[in-house]
């Protein structure tokens, strides 16, 4: 039951974009819904794998050797390698999707959310299971956020937004209103 609550928490109550405030810039980028879905899945995959590898690196290498301070560079390197690997794999399996991502594999790694989750796991001292679930569910939450925001953006395409607010300002305000709605999930996990 605890695990289920933890998972629900990661996806909804502590949604990585609307509650933990990571990956906001990426979530709000101008994309169609389909592209947003692919991007979200990519980030989710990278986030999960990075979380797992980072956990391994941290528990097996860094912490025993008291090298915690190397976490940041180490996790960054892991994220870079994983997303490069992912880009290569995707290119072989589903090139169409890769095109949609417009070759932005590295920005996927550079996503604040990816590194953030890995660091969160390390600092909270999660076990393997929780680290994996945190990565996976935060990723799912990210996917949800990206798709929802893309949907709202599409609706706003015809809106007569005042000129200074067009673009990022209104995106942030929209995100704020969505975050307000997500407060409804408080208390669930």
């Amino acid at each position: 039951m605890n695990i289920l609550l933890f998972m629900i928490g990661c996806v909804f109550t502590h949604n990585i974009v609307f509650d933990r405030l990571l990956g906001v810039g990426d979530a709000g980028k101008d994309r169609r819904v389909e592209v947003a879905a692919v991007y979200g899945l990519a980030v989710c995959a990278v986030m999960t794998l990075t979380a797992v590898c980072a956990w391994a690196a941290d528990s097996l290498l860094l912490t025993p050797m008291k090298l915690d301070f190397l976490r940041v560079p180490a996790f960054t390197l892991i994220a870079i390698l994983i997303s490069l690997l992912g880009q290569v794999c995707l290119g072989k399996v589903k090139p169409a999707w890769l095109e949609q991502l417009e070759g932005c594999a590295l920005p996927v790694a550079a996503n604040v959310a990816v590194l953030g989750v890995a660091l969160m796991n390390a600092e909270a001292g999660y076990s393997f299971a929780y680290a994996l679930l945190n990565g996976l569910c935060s990723g799912a939450g990210f996917l949800l956020a990206v798709v929802l925001m893309a949907g709202v953006r599409e609706k706003l395409e015809f809106s007569r937004i005042p000129a200074p607010f067009k673009g990022m300002p209104i995106t942030l305000i929209s995100a704020g209103l969505i975050a307000l709605a997500f407060i409804g999930f408080k208390g669930m996990a």
């Binding site: 706003l156 007569r160 937004i161 005042p162 209103l177 709605a181």
Partner: peptide
């Protein structure tokens, strides 16, 4: 801020209440 009538994506009264 979203442009006025027809341009918002949340019900204004409800969002204000929240």
């Amino acid at each position: 801020l979203f442009g006025g009538l027809g341009d918002n994506f949340l019900n204004p009264a409800l969002a204000a209440r929240a």
